[in-house]
């Protein structure tokens, strides 16, 4: 279930990525800087840990920026790893679709709902909402209040 943190550290540093690997309630999490995220993912994919499946990808508004989490799985070793990176509010997220095609839709969704730009995506359109809808998952966007609903 949990990969070896030291092996993970070695693979990432061999690829020239400055990473901080820790074990949390989530599992093994590797924090990597935003500009090296793609390198880190490609190193993990090619390594003998064999993380060739991107199970999921999500973004979260932390108040300082958008935290992107990639969830990789290795079926041959039955291990999961989470790769986290921070993207500034006005920055662009580099697409990893040519490493993991399964990121195509989640990336579009994350970019649209958290209001960041998408870089290198073959189809960077909105996925879920229409033009003019705010970045709904941002903390600054509030849900409707009870009064608004009542006054519908």
């Amino acid at each position: 279930m949990l990969p070896d943190a030291t092996v993970l550290n070695r693979i990432l540093s061999d690829a020239g990525v400055t990473a901080r690997v820790e074990e949390t309630t989530l599992g093994i999490v590797a924090h990597v800087p935003c500009e090296m995220a793609v390198e880190a993912l490609s190193a993990l994919r090619g390594s003998d840990l064999d993380f060739h499946m991107l199970l999921d990808m999500l973004g979260a508004d932390t108040g300082e920026g958008i935290e992107i989490t990639y969830h990789l799985r290795s079926l041959s070793r039955d291990e999961d790893v989470f790769v986290k990176t921070e993207v500034a509010y006005d920055a662009a997220l580099r697409s990893v679709w040519n490493l993991f095609p399964s990121a195509l839709a989640p990336e579009r969704e994350t970019a649209e709902l958290l209001g960041i730009k998408l870089d290198g995506h073959p189809n960077p359109k909105r996925l879920l909402t229409t033009d003019g809808v705010a970045a709904l998952l941002r903390k600054s966007v509030a849900v409707r209040s009870a009064e608004e609903v009542r006054a519908r």
Binding site: D56, L58, H71
Partner: peptide
């Protein structure tokens, strides 16, 4: 904390990825 919990639903791996801060509702719920 942060947690990932998955089940095998009829359609595949349905999972919840949740970030909490000690309050009564999640901070981020995926």
């Amino acid at each position: 904390g942060e947690v990932y919990a998955s089940v095998e639903s009829s359609r595949g791996e349905t999972a919840v990825h949740m970030v909490t801060d000690g309050g009564t509702s999640p901070v981020r719920y995926h």
